[in-house]
Design a protein around this nucleic acid. Structure first.
Length: 594
RNA sequence: GCGCCGGUGGUCUAGUGGUAGGACAUGAGCUUCCCAAGCUCAUAGCCCGGGUUCAAUUCCCGGCCGGCGCACCA
């Protein structure tokens, strides 16, 4: 401990921490509402100098762990994509909300829900708007809140995607992606080439996504433009298993659906290995990434006492997702979603396979080639052409289909095909019908995808919140951010003890030296030394170096290094400074060991 | 989107039908010299639009923004 009075910070976080943090963030440049000069705009935040740096460091840490260390590729796709992409992804329809407002009490309700709850319609969301309005009138549906009639009220759609136009005019609509993942799925046909058509492989992307939220809330937690770090891990569901050994011993707090539904349910403490064995986590792939994520979250500074993995309840899960877990962090008593881990099966790639001309499949070679007997046709176009004119190609398609499903149809002299309700007799000899043995080397499969999807802004907020501390030093109140050195915006502050040319010169030399070693350094020579320490405490700088008169007396050999959380000080030789501090930053050395 | 409450220097806030005061922060100087010290000076503010009024930061209406509740959150 320091020679100074130093109170413990255990009880430092209170309900009001969020308020204090938001104020600090604004004042010190972590984040603030955007476009303030024009009245501000809801749901958009700017990361200031400190925040941008912290966010960048968090992203770098994520990249190191989820791309580099896992051997995955990273891409950077556009945020705007054309309409067909979102027709395929389902966002154009599925992201639509139908809202109807009560004329009496003013409450807005999901029109499709009102219809589904009170009629025999089961999928009201797929009905066109006018029809929903008709149904509401016909059944004389009422407001769920106050009971007033809703007939005659306009049903309005609200799509959470931001729309724009690509190029001049409005003939080519585009949308800002509502999740960064879409860029990975869309580029899959090319990405699989880079993976040399071998499963499994993973692709990451860190980037912005946009949702035109009806009501952005709670500072930076729910915004309209946000950064996601996503990994799409493509696997062959029949062949690929994760290396669970590597994470089996990771201890986790799990909050399974069963516990959430139980009267007195509560989160359970277990390990990844046990959770998989006991079937708590059904997908080993999801389990694997939970096991990777937990230590990573700890490393960037999330308080593990306020962290858990919560399983989605069946109702909140997308229909295609077999199992889904969220990473959650606690903020002032509320659990907020930090990441989602979903086993999405082949949903995304199948949709694009269906909507796009491109192939979203992987060719999977059999161990042994298979020999199959197959009926084929090779029609004589010099006959079919003149005979059927423009319909000739349709005839060929029909013949191919017929050969595949009923080769007996070709047993006679002629074969009958149905074309637009007419039956045509075609001489079999003109069809080139044959039954051949073919060898198949493999098949095209649609990979399944495991998706760990991280919210970066929310994580930055959580890291700041969990790092917020208040204590007392020498009877003076102090506020500081106990940020992990790996992510702190500034790693070291360098000060001359007071205004003095010699002290300042030496201090500036040290700044250059440390920056040359790749450290993030700030220099400050204003006012009192204590004030400068507090300033750095408040932005979370882990270390401060002070040049004093002892430094000068000994021909500039040693300086004071002060640690943020304890305010302890040690004297270090200047020429070892860069090396020692780098080692501390990289976790190879602890300040106490000096 | 609805309801309630709110919006005053960078931050936090006092106050007013006659254009505003404090604290902290910031900058300069003096002083001091290892934990927000002192003194002097300086910079800097009534969210936007309309209305009422001789006069609006203040009252009224609308908007924007924020907090909370409801709804929403693929």
């Amino acid at each position: 401990m320091s020679e100074h009075e130093h109170a413990a910070a255990d009880e430092s976080t209170t309900e009001a921490t969020s308020e204090k943090l938001v104020e600090l963030a604004k004042r010190r440049g972590y984040f603030f509402q955007s476009s303030g000069a024009y009245g501000g705009v809801g749901g958009f935040y700017t990361f200031g100098p400190q925040g941008a740096s912290l966010k960048g460091n968090v992203e770098d840490a994520w990249r190191d762990r989820f791309a580099v260390a896992e051997g995955n590729m990273e891409i950077d796709a556009p945020t705007i994509m054309p309409e067909p992409v979102f027709e395929a992804s389902g966002h154009l329809d599925g992201f639509d909300d139908m809202l109807v407002e009560c004329p009496d009490c003013g409450e807005s309700h999901r029109a499709d829900h009102v219809v589904e709850d009170n009629t025999e319609y089961e999928d009201a969301e797929s009905l066109p708007i006018p029809e929903v309005e008709e149904v509401i009138a016909e059944y004389e549906l009422v407001c769920p809140s106050c009971g007033a009639g809703l007939a005659g009220q306009a049903v309005e759609t609200f799509n959470l995607m931001f729309a724009t136009n690509i190029g001049p005019g409005d003939s080519d609509p585009g949308y800002l992606r509502p999740e960064t993942a879409q860029g990975i799925f869309v580029e899959f046909p090319r990405l699989k080439e880079y993976a040399r058509n071998q499963l499994p492989f993973g692709v990451t992307q860190i980037g912005r996504a946009y949702r035109n939220e009806i009501s952005p809330r709670r500072s930076i937690i729910r915004v309209r433009e946000f950064t996601q770090a996503e990994l799409e891990y493509f696997i062959d569901p029949e062949e690929d298993d994760p290396d669970l050994e590597r994470v089996a011993d990771v201890e986790v707090t799990l909050y399974p659906a069963a516990e959430q539904n139980a009267e007195d349910g509560s989160p359970i403490e277990t390990t990844i290995g046990e959770a998989v064995e006991e079937g708590v986590i059904s997908s080993p792939w999801v389990a694997y990434f939970l096991g990777v994520a937990k230590p990573w979250y700890e490393g960037v500074g999330v308080d593990m006492d306020r962290f858990r993995f919560r399983q989605h309840l069946s109702g909140e899960r997308a229909h295609y997702a077999a199992d889904c877990w969220d990473a959650e962090g606690e903020i002032d008593g509320n659990w907020i979603e930090l990441a989602g881990f979903a086993y999405r099966s082949d949903y995304d790639l199948s949709k694009h396979e269906e909507y796009s001309e491109d192939r979203f499949t992987i060719f999977k070679q059999y161990d042994e080639p298979k020999t199959v007997e197959r009926a084929t046709v090779d029609p004589d176009m010099s006959y079919l052409g003149p005979e059927f004119g423009g319909a000739a190609q349709d005839v060929v398609d029909e013949l191919e289909a017929l050969a595949a499903r009923d080769r007996e149809a070709f047993a006679g002299e002629t074969v009958a095909i149905e074309l637009e309700d007419e039956t045509h007799e075609i001489p079999v000899e003109k069809t080139g019908f044959a039954v051949e043995e073919q060898t198949e080397a493999g098949e095209h499969i649609v990979p399944h995808v495991v998706e760990p999807s991280f919210g970066v802004g929310r994580l930055v907020y959580t890291v700041l919140h969990h790092a917020y501390r208040e204590d007392e030093v020498d009877g003076e109140q102090r506020t500081y951010l106990a940020l992990e050195p790996e992510v702190a915006p500034t790693f070291v502050g360098v000060f001359p003890l007071q205004s003095d040319d010699d002290l300042e010169t030496t201090a500036r030399e040290i700044v250059d030296d440390l920056r040359g070693a790749g450290l993030s350094v700030t220099y400050d020579d204003s006012g009192n030394i204590g004030r400068r320490y507090r300033r750095q405490d408040e932005v979370g700088t882990p270390f401060c170096v002070t040049v004093d008169y002892e430094t000068l007396e000994n021909e500039a050999t040693t300086v004071t290094v002060r640690e943020r959380d304890t305010t302890d000080q040690k004297r270090l030789p200047i020429d070892e400074l860069a090396e020692t501090l780098s080692a501390i930053r990289d976790g190879e050395l602890a300040f106490e060991e000096l």
